[in-house]
Amino acid sequence: MLVVVSDTHAREESKLQGRTAEAVREAELVVHAGDFYREPVLDAFQSAAAGLRAVYGNNDDAAIRDRIPEARTVEYAGVRFAVTHRHRSGDTGLVMLGRGRDADAVICGHSHRPRFDDAGGLPILNPGSHAQPRGNRPAHAELTPSDDDPTEDEGGLEGKLVTPDGETFETFRIEGGSTE
């Protein structure tokens, strides 16, 4: 399972609770799309997650920026993701980042609003914020490999947006295979 979180905005701990904490501990890979806020929070995520791939956000301190990149590419179960916290040009910039990295989808954060949007050329996944939803539903994303046709090499992921209480409020699918 791939778990995606963002926008923790904490000083000393991961603020992981309920299903979000369980999912991070169970995941093969955890992607954090920025705004840990302070370095001890990054350390807490590295301790909690078996595999962590993260980017820094606009509110992350210099110690975090020295340790992780602003953008990166992550592959999981045949799906390639471009990961960044935000893009000044909005969704268009996110799609261009994804295309530039030959990605199947883009993961971002920043808005604290959980959403999956596949209407703009490349799917965009924002897990929202598990810790500071700012008027939105607190959330994270969980993605698992599709079992539709095990003979297919293209891959694909079944995804869902989930609250820390364990409520799934949106499901989606991301196709893989744009990379060779």
Rank of each mutant, 00 (worst) to 15 (best):
L2K: 02
L2P: 03
V3F: 00
V3E: 00
V3K: 02
V5C: 02
V5I: 12
S6D: 02
T8D: 02
H9C: 01
R11N: 10
E13P: 02
E13F: 08
S14F: 00
K15Y: 12
R19E: 15
A21I: 00
E22I: 09
E22T: 14
E22W: 08
A23P: 05
V24R: 04
V24K: 06
R25G: 12
E26V: 13
L29W: 00
L29F: 00
A33K: 01
F36P: 04
R38K: 09
E39Q: 07
V41H: 01
V41E: 05
A44K: 05
F45R: 03
Q46L: 11
S47G: 13
A50I: 03
R53H: 08
A54S: 12
N58D: 10
N58C: 04
N59C: 14
N59Y: 07
D60E: 12
D61C: 15
A62S: 07
I64T: 03
I64D: 04
R67L: 11
R67V: 07
A71N: 05
R72P: 00
R72T: 10
R72Y: 00
R72K: 01
R72C: 07
E75S: 06
A77M: 06
A77N: 06
V79N: 10
R80Q: 07
R80N: 07
A82H: 06
V83C: 04
V83F: 02
T84G: 10
R88G: 14
R88D: 15
S89G: 15
S89I: 15
L94W: 08
M96G: 11
L97D: 13
L97Y: 09
G100T: 10
R101V: 05
R101K: 09
D104E: 04
A105L: 04
C108G: 09
S111P: 02
S111D: 09
H112M: 13
H112A: 15
R113G: 13
R113C: 15
R115D: 12
F116K: 06
D117G: 15
D118L: 09
D118S: 15
A119N: 14
A119H: 14
G120H: 14
G121H: 08
I124F: 10
L125Q: 08
P127Y: 06
G128S: 12
S129T: 10
A131F: 01
R134G: 08
R134W: 11
G135A: 14
H140W: 09
H140R: 13
H140I: 14
A141Q: 06
A141R: 06
T144M: 00
T144F: 00
P145D: 00
S146T: 15
D148M: 05
D149V: 11
T151N: 09
T151W: 11
E154V: 09
E154R: 11
G156C: 09
G156R: 05
E158A: 13
G159Y: 00
L161A: 12
V162N: 10
T163E: 13
D165K: 04
E167F: 08
T168N: 10
T168F: 10
F169N: 08
E170A: 13
E170D: 11
F172P: 14
R173P: 00
I174C: 02
E175G: 12
G176W: 03
G177Y: 01
S178T: 03
S178Y: 01
S178H: 03
E180W: 06
E180M: 08
